[in-house]
Design a protein around this nucleic acid. Structure first.
Lengths: 209, 209
DNA sequence: GAAACGAAACTGACTGGTCAGTATCATAGC
DNA sequence: GCTATGATACTGACCAGTCAGTTTCGTTTC
């Protein structure tokens, strides 16, 4: 068996275990056993337990970026691109629910980690945000998206909504909350339109914190 | 010193420590020392380390709910209530940044916990969502918010946006992302409206459709 | 083509340190 | 006296990381 296969095997086992229990509840003996690999082998591929953990957690970003790069047609219209991207992201969150949760969990913890791990995390994360921001920038350029907000900020907000959908709404009210609905809120807001409802005067009260 | 004071002391120490390092990096001896309390005393107030941890993490919800209950004027208009609620939530996230992160981190991990802890978490969480949903329901009733989405779902989405703002945007682009902007996106969406340009700092030129 | 070799990958038993949780006891407050 | 507490000692389980020995595999030599 080739070296890379071993590595793959270890990461798969690590993903399976780290997504099922907490960090300190997983031993490297568990990982080794699950991966059908000697414990020492882990250390030939990963510096230590933390390294294994974060490499596993960050791998999701890589997969997702790769997915977007491949599945979102470069030449398509803004709307098609956005829809496709949201679908891909949502599907990924659903299919890899465990890994998604692990990524969520670790996100909040990255601050506590040594610089290099945190940097690596932020770098991967930025790749995803950029990919989405690029699509939104196209929407701005085509005049379909408001231009008063930087695309990166829009991308974060959209990802936040998708995250919320995957994390909270899928449990609380799955039936009420299709992807189309979330995208609709992102695009049109929750303001009631037409039928004499007040237009987009917005929420511009003084809200400086 | 009264019993509740002790408990308070322990939880404060726990919050300080658990928000600064990872669970397995904190010892109960640390907590006892920081709280100026005997180690055994901790066990008079909390079943075990997990219990202490989750009680600390969930305390944020209680505080936040209490804040909303007190600060959001019951008789005010929908808009005023929503604005006030968002301000309170945002301020809480900012001022108690560490606890907020801890809550975020644990949120994703609740699934892995024994039933009672998870239930307690969800219950507290639901309190917050309900408080926000109630305000939004008022908006629906008054015809200012679209009626095709259940208020709970709207509340989750709004909280998701606020979370994103506190978590990601405050680091990435704090200047670009005031609370008013996030609320505006929630209310009006990112769709470009009308023909009169929105002006300001977009990096893209208008290329009218 | 097979034997001998060497380097790198791999293994898993072992170790040294850590820590949650308990036990003990003297003290304080009521 | 009785309960809660601080201080501290104790212990038994646990586990990350190590390392000496084993396997694998490509290369060289005959």
């Amino acid at each position: 068996m080739a070296r890379q296969d071993k590595r793959q095997q270890i990461m798969q086992a690590a993903e399976r275990l780290f997504t099922s229990r907490r960090f300190h509840e997983i031993t490297l003996d568990d990982v080794a056993r699950t991966a059908k690999v000697g414990k020492g082998t882990i250390y030939r591929h990963f510096r230590d337990k933390d390294d294994l953990f974060f490499q596993t957690a960050t791998s999701g970003f890589d997969e997702l970026c790769e997915l977007l790069r491949r599945q979102v047609p470069a030449g398509a219209s803004f709307f098609d691109q956005l829809t496709e991207a949201c679908m891909q992201i949502s599907r990924f969150f659903e299919q890899r629910r465990q890994l998604f949760r692990m990524m969520q969990t670790e996100e909040g913890r990255m601050q506590w980690c040594g610089g290099s791990l945190r940097d690596r995390w932020l770098e991967r994360r930025k790749g995803l945000v950029s990919a989405v921001a690029e699509i939104l920038a196209k929407g701005v350029a085509e005049g379909q998206v408001r231009a008063d907000i930087p695309p990166e900020v829009l991308a974060h907000l959209l990802l936040g909504l998708l995250r919320t959908r995957a994390r909270d709404l899928s449990e609380v009210a799955p039936a009420d909350c299709g992807l189309a609905l979330v995208m609709d809120v992102f695009y049109n807001g929750v303001c009631r339109r037409g039928a004499g409802g007040q237009a987009s005067q917005g929420t511009q009260k003084d809200t400086s914190p």
